[in-house]
């Protein structure tokens, strides 16, 4: 939709907002008009926050996660197990796994998964930095925690081929019945795999 704008500033702001995913011109206009109602101080704060994204955000030199310093809080934490690296597709996945509070190792953010159809090849991912990290030594396990799609699987496979010689253990997330799921609603492939890869029963687990 095209509007005739009464102000060049307004038009520019709307154009910038509508570049964001899921935001169209109408929503962008609503957001901008909302901001104009705010007092000057909070508007400045909003703008400066966005400016700082460009000037202050850095990528952790070890795991490529987003952070403020040279290392991200996870990599900087001495109490965490630096000999286990969990490979994830993006920054969001790090947050999701951290939220489980079950993982005490460190991460490596690939920045995508291999899909030539989408123009993403192995060279576009943070694999060289992962390899360098492994060469520095003391890594005993890699956990492949990518999505269970065909592209995720291909990427797992590729990483395995490239890295298996230099790592004692490469594991991947278990695939099976979700907690709280009833059998009749599980898809056949997952259920079939869960039966093939069944695990010994343990009490209190």
């Amino acid at each position: 939709m095209y509007f005739t704008y009464s102000s060049k500033q307004l038009e520019d702001a709307v154009r910038e907002f509508s570049k964001l995913p899921g935001i169209g011109t109408k929503t962008a206009l609503r957001l901008v008009l909302h901001l104009l109602k705010e007092n000057r101080e909070s508007l400045d704060h909003f703008g400066n926050t966005i400016l700082r994204l460009g000037t202050h955000i850095r990528y952790c030199k070890d795991c490529m996660n987003i952070c403020d310093d040279e290392l991200c809080p996870v990599c900087a934490d001495k109490r965490r197990d630096h000999s286990i690296i969990c490979i994830v597709e993006n920054v969001k996945d790090v947050m999701i796994i951290e939220n489980t509070r079950q993982y005490r190792g460190v991460y490596h953010v690939l920045g995508g998964i291999i899909s030539p159809m989408d123009g993403i090849g192995p060279a576009d991912l943070n694999i060289d930095s992962l390899e360098a990290r492994i060469k520095r030594g003391n890594i005993r396990e890699l956990i492949l925690a990518l999505s269970a799609t065909m592209e995720g699987d291909t990427t797992n496979y590729y990483l395995y081929r490239r890295l298996s010689k230099s790592i004692p253990v490469i594991s991947t997330l278990a695939r099976g019945v979700s907690i709280g799921d009833e059998l009749e609603f599980i898809d056949e492939v997952t259920l079939g795999r869960s039966i093939l890869n069944r695990v010994p029963f343990e009490m209190n687990k």
Partner: peptide, 25 residues
């Protein structure tokens, strides 16, 4: 998979460097 492999082969001719591991995967 075939579509991905074909696209990969096309990209080798273009800007990508040839990654043998990828093709083997």
């Amino acid at each position: 998979l075939l579509a991905q492999r074909n696209k990969f082969l096309k990209n080798i001719q273009g800007s990508w460097h040839y990654d043998r591991d990828m093709l083997e995967v």
